[in-house]
Write a protein that binds this DNA or RNA. Sequence first.
DNA 1: GGGTAATAATTTCCTTCGTCAAGTATTGAT
DNA 2: ATCAATACTTGACGAAGGAAATTATTACCC
Lengths: 381, 381
Amino acid sequence: MLHEAALAPAATAVFTAVLTEGPLSRVALARRLDLSSAAVTKGARPLIELGYLEELAATERTGPGAGRPASPLAVRADREFFVGVKITGDELIGVVCDLRAEIRASAHRPLPTPDVDQVLASLASLVDELLDGDFRARTRRLGLAVSGDVDYSTGLVRYSPFLGWRDVPLRSRAEQVIGLTVTVENDVKALTTAEHWFGEGVGAESFALVTVGAGIGCGLVVGGRLVSGSHGVAGEIGHIAVDANGPDCHCGGRGCVEALAGASAIVRQARAVAGRPELTLPDAVALARAGDAAVGAVFDRAGDAIGAGIAAVANLVGPARIVVSGEGLSAYDLFEPRIRESFQRQAFGAAADCPLSIRPLPFEQWARGAATVSIKALVAS
Amino acid sequence: MLHEAALAPAATAVFTAVLTEGPLSRVALARRLDLSSAAVTKGARPLIELGYLEELAATERTGPGAGRPASPLAVRADREFFVGVKITGDELIGVVCDLRAEIRASAHRPLPTPDVDQVLASLASLVDELLDGDFRARTRRLGLAVSGDVDYSTGLVRYSPFLGWRDVPLRSRAEQVIGLTVTVENDVKALTTAEHWFGEGVGAESFALVTVGAGIGCGLVVGGRLVSGSHGVAGEIGHIAVDANGPDCHCGGRGCVEALAGASAIVRQARAVAGRPELTLPDAVALARAGDAAVGAVFDRAGDAIGAGIAAVANLVGPARIVVSGEGLSAYDLFEPRIRESFQRQAFGAAADCPLSIRPLPFEQWARGAATVSIKALVAS
DNA sequence: GGGTAATAATTTCCTTCGTCAAGTATTGAT
DNA sequence: ATCAATACTTGACGAAGGAAATTATTACCC
């Protein structure tokens, strides 16, 4: 909640719209939100008084030219700050974001062991460093992003393979240590939220984000809401079967996308075709770039698998757009064309029109995702 | 709308809950809908006055035993009737349903040609026959189900391959001819709505229905709402690629579920392995049932493909349950075990817990789906 | 410059719709 | 009979948004 006293629904709607879709006049907001302009005026007033919104000077005219110029409402981005931290198996990456999720500061900590107490201690020191400067006084919230099975509503990390955590009540633990209001979310979902609120998914009723790296993950927004899955499973694009005769996957399936295009799968295949058991992923990338046909074919096959997986998403839920990001592994641009090709081939009918953005996102963007979740928690509660 | 004067939101919520979840006391409704019991009382009153709800006699006691007994509210199913018609390439199948979507009468008409005018004439005669009896006076709405690309909101059939229709304004045409308020919906979506409101999907926040027949289709409910897809495509499970080296599909893809398990794909493969170019689908079924290993393998492969497709749905959106129905082609029970096996193998983690109901639905159920859409249109508008 | 039309924002009044709290109804237990 | 428990109803109240009149500000025209 932006204020102790609950705000009217219209106020929340106005703030969310201005936050995600940029400065808008009251009349424009009324049209977009299907409200009367009176309701927008009333909803916006307390937000202005609290310092969350401000009125901009009238800009250029629109339409025929006559009439009172609009005074667009804009978010005062520095009204409040948010810390976001992505917890990986060997590092904490932290950022401070403003209300518009712009990164204002960043820092990180190595993580020798994934011991919970030690992580919390590192986290405290990281947050302390990040908030130095003018941030501390205007920061109330911390978002954490963890890979694995996370229960957002309770802040419980049910199972995180990379960290080896089971049933860690991370939210309450972190709130005790840090003294900020904490949100905990799955990392892919956090990144998806960031893109949905502040990135390429803005305004999309449905939207998908696919991450390619060690694992292949997918965050899904349908009907404006993040999909969670009734049994806690959703977005497991990595374990869609795309090749009935493909390699066995560690999940027990066969020919999963991840078994063809996950980082370890690529290394394994590259080692086999190159006959060099010590080969690393960078080696494989170098060989492929140098024109090694056999290793290149491994990447081609991986690209085909990813494209087919993405096409499955497009065919099933029909998102307005799909972002494919590579966890900072820029090497994946190597098979970007093959992803597009395979997607086009397997997307059915108009699903092929779904725009695909393929671009690596640095780790800081994952931390920003965590901050975004805490922004969303502030606004929509 | 149930009445000319718009009803309060609570009234609609109450009616929908009683309709889909059976008789419920006001207090139980208040709990379920997160309303005060006063709001339920006020919302229910006009519905009782209009004859849509009735108060049942108190049933058996619940809880400790003391206290005034609840008087459950129940839908008066015969308050209003609805006609539903499924339009196939060669037949009209029609039913009359009551408010609870119970079929009260059914009839059909052969359809020599899919000419629009002729279809409308047959439709008029079919509806006329169906409404004979006591139905006519209490019937205001007709639902139509058509395969292909249908715009529910405008009632426009954009493209229906089986009928050869393009941009047919079916709703307005039918309303002129029939004199009822008409809704037009895609047939798979209609069937999905029926299962979601009155079948196995009741109460599920997310739900999927897969139809196996000439084509392989899928209706998807996520967040309580039918998924439509931003580009008009959704639920195209038939064109998910499950075999990178599988046969080419008419859609331009390769190894699609439909290219392995669609009716024509099965016939084609069975002809090839049996060396009998005149083989029909019933022949293939008979051979497989008689123990022909090669033809049996065709069905096995088809079952694998369907199971993999269903697993993709479970992995991506995590529905609470999945219904697989066979368009009346009961032969498909032949590969039911293989579907389950393949699903279990490819469903990731807890997604494998998703209950699968595999059962053929007769064509009348599709017509019932059409009627359900018109019921929903009445209630939620 | 003054009038006029157009558009934006605000204000006032009103309706809708739900909650709260008090009261009524109906039962079983003592 | 009395009491506790539960279900339902009622009436007062308040939050929230809409309709329409009002004010504000501009461009355009003469």
